[in-house]
């Protein structure tokens, strides 16, 4: 049994934590324009610590761009408030240091470094110069725990480049965990995974989200139904609908957008 430092017990629930002072992410009027094309159009989004929010929408809806904007990768207007701190307009690494972590649609780990090195780097942004210039002798306890959580404790010395696809995604999640972010933005973490891997990842997301602000971009509606505690639907850069899975599925506007696709309405009712 792991000491629950990275993953305290609990379940995510709609609306997030009901006690204490939960952390939150408050997005207001977020817009991103690429040469005049509004990829993200005046988006408002509130996610509270302990909520497992899924961000869904057709291809090109702007889901990835929302994450890019929050993490400082693309310039955006509006406001993104993380528990009292404005994070929009900062550099990527500064946003990361303020506790906002993300993964990418295509797993991006350091392929020429071992699993252990990947995690150690993720855990180390706060290290001072002297520690940086010394050799890595011991394994950070958080890294050790993350290895166990993502099931890669047997592969610590393996180059990340030769991991299976699913393992790379897990490694990325592990990197997020040791990075100690309060806000997790995961872009299609189960894309390309087998059914079993999906199930395991879903359970992992559930445990992670119980104590964090979590936004997961996902297309697979079965997966969304199984694990989401709340859903935001994005289409053509705008928020179309928001609520529980049942609520957004019942939304006429959502059904219209998904008409003909294998999405909500096919699996609905």
């Amino acid at each position: 049994m792991t000491t629950p430092t990275l993953l305290p017990d609990g379940e995510p629930r709609a609306g997030g934590l009901r006690h204490g002072r939960p952390k939150y992410l408050e997005v207001r009027g977020l817009s991103v324009s690429f040469d005049g094309f509004l990829a993200v159009d005046n988006v408002n989004l509130d996610v509270v610590q302990g909520d497992l929010r899924f961000l869904i929408g057709p291809n090109g809806a702007g889901k990835t761009t929302v994450i890019d904007a929050i993490t400082g990768l693309v310039p955006a207007t509006g406001s993104v408030n993380h528990t009292g701190t404005e994070i929009l307009g900062r550099k990527v690494h500064q946003v990361a240091r303020l506790g906002v972590g993300r993964t990418f649609q295509t797993a991006s780990v350091f392929e020429n470094l071992s699993v252990l090195q990947n995690l150690d780097i993720a855990a180390g942004a706060g290290r001072g110069p002297l520690r940086m210039l010394r050799r890595r002798k011991t394994v950070d306890p958080a890294v050790e725990e993350a290895l166990e959580i993502i099931g890669l404790e047997g592969a610590t010395g393996k180059m990340a480049g030769i991991l299976a696809h699913g393992q790379k995604q897990w490694l990325e999640i592990g990197m997020l965990l040791v990075q100690n972010s309060d806000v997790l933005l995961l872009d299609e973490p189960i894309a390309g995974m087998s059914q079993d891997e999906r199930g395991e990842t879903g359970e992992l997301l559930r445990r992670i989200a119980a104590s964090r602000i979590t936004v997961v971009v996902e297309h697979d509606m079965d997966f969304v139904r199984e694990y989401a505690t709340s859903v935001t639907v994005l289409a053509a850069g705008k928020v179309l609908s928001e609520g529980s899975v049942a609520q957004v599925q019942a939304d006429k506007k959502v059904q219209d957008v998904y008409l003909g696709s294998s999405g909500v309405e096919a699996a609905g009712a």
């Binding site: 990361a96 020429n112 942004a125 990075q179």
Partner: peptide
């Protein structure tokens, strides 16, 4: 080495 291979990724971990 991480910066050499994936400079952009390193930023998201909080390093410049």
């Amino acid at each position: 080495v991480a910066v050499r291979d994936q400079e952009e990724r390193v930023r998201f971990l909080g390093y410049d």
